[in-house]
Nucleic acid binder design. Structure first.
Lengths: 239, 239
DNA sequence: CGCTCAGTTGACCGAATTCAATGCCAGTGG
DNA sequence: CCACTGGCATTGAATTCGGTCAACTGAGCG
């Protein structure tokens, strides 16, 4: 159930058997959600955090006029709103993109965890800091990269994040979202997102069709996007 | 020395005398830096984190072609690179904007703190999560707001962050940066930043000249920027 | 079959960039 | 005291990237 999370924590540091047991002990029930439902509403008081087990979710922020920005995408093994453990409410919504399964981590159990397992707590803290690192990379994309490069860069990011979990993912990725939603990640309108995807397709870099991303040439895509995975912190060190 | 940090932590939760003492005990020496020097280089291994006592600093990311994006601005009381405590290196540079003074928090002392003072640690964790919340708001700005609104929103943010520390800040703020650097925060070129500032000035909202920001009408500026300070988490709750 | 939703394309428009020139200091050295 | 310099701010003109509006296609479905 938490295998993906553990795998990803162990990429960055050792996790003892005891810590693993403690982490399992934090989780209570699981729940399934269909695609496109809001899981957490901005501002509502939180008493638990949510671990994504399966599927894909996003965090999004709204402008009063209805414009939306997706600020983060989440894959299995991500704690969707672990930052809510210390913040107690969120500044954004959390919604499912594809059908998803989650597990709940009540905050009182997490508090106990911080008291009994400081090292494990630092690792969880680290995961929220890695989320922030992705936010920063997205800021760089939104502020400085062109639409096409931005899209290519996002594809590289998702590929790299997937690759650490499933070594041989080949060249295809499931992205259960519409072009409109992809545009909300990239800060582009649907129309322009469509043109940018066409450009990447015709350049032989990547094709995105109905929730399936096919990467034709990952190396050329990375070159095109000027992609450096350092910000994903894939190295193992004592923390 | 850490009064500003304490004040801002106590805005969000109680901090006991004992925790205050522990926090003071974490800090070692202080150091002064002139304006415009790089304090931390991306990628370099970190063994301490840095608390900003005075002045202003920023975090910035570079593209290979020299384009830069400033991803965060820091005011006194901010831990510049507390995320480096768990990440062990940064994905960005940290540099001073104006002349600044900092204090150092060695990571081994912070580890001790996580073991002895879990509640205080959760508060420090919270501060890194508040940084991430600002990143998200900047993503929203960069992705969805127009140049002028983006600038106005940033001014509102800085005003609000300053206000919690100095209740009667009036209508003027020190921002020791050039228009070029402001543009790097906003994802705009110098030229367009200049035009946007002119627009805000002529609309009677705010004037930015040589490091001084004068806000003519904070309420109208907030309306113009559609500013909602919720993402700054200025409410007090047990965490 | 007709509905809706996602994707696609064209024509046009506007915000922001690029390129280039000019103005405005503050500092410095003759 | 003034000329010179360099960094920053300002403005204009031309250009481009991305947005807006609108029409059309095609797939899925009741």
């Amino acid at each position: 159930m938490i295998e993906t999370l553990l795998l990803r924590l162990r990429l960055r540091d050792d996790v003892s058997e005891e810590e693993e047991a403690a982490l399992r002990g934090v989780l209570t029930s699981t729940q399934d959600y269909p695609a496109r439902v809001r899981i957490v509403r901005r501002g509502e008081p939180l008493e638990r955090s949510i671990l994504l087990l399966n599927g894909m979710m996003c965090r999004c922020k709204n402008l009063r006029n209805g414009q939306r920005q997706i600020t983060a995408l989440h894959v299995p093994g991500d704690f969707l709103d672990l930052h809510g453990f210390t913040l107690k409410r969120l500044d954004h919504d959390v919604m499912s993109l594809g059908a998803s399964r989650v597990a709940f981590a009540p905050h009182d159990r997490l508090i106990k965890l911080t008291e009994d397992h400081p090292h494990l707590m630092r690792l969880l803290w680290m995961t929220t800091n890695m989320d922030a690192a992705m936010h920063r990379e997205w800021e760089l994309s939104l502020g400085q990269r062109s639409g096409a490069v931005r899209a290519a860069h996002l594809f590289c990011e998702l590929h790299a994040r997937e690759e650490v979990v499933h070594k041989n993912i080949g060249h295809t990725l499931k992205l259960p979202m519409t072009q409109a939603e992809l545009g909300e990640c990239l800060g582009l309108t649907v129309v322009h997102t469509n043109r940018v995807l066409k450009e990447l397709r015709e350049a032989g870099l990547a094709s995105f069709t109905r929730g399936d991303l096919v990467i034709h040439d990952i190396q050329r895509l990375r070159d095109f996007a000027d992609f450096d995975p350092a910000y994903l912190y894939l190295d193992k060190r004592p923390r």
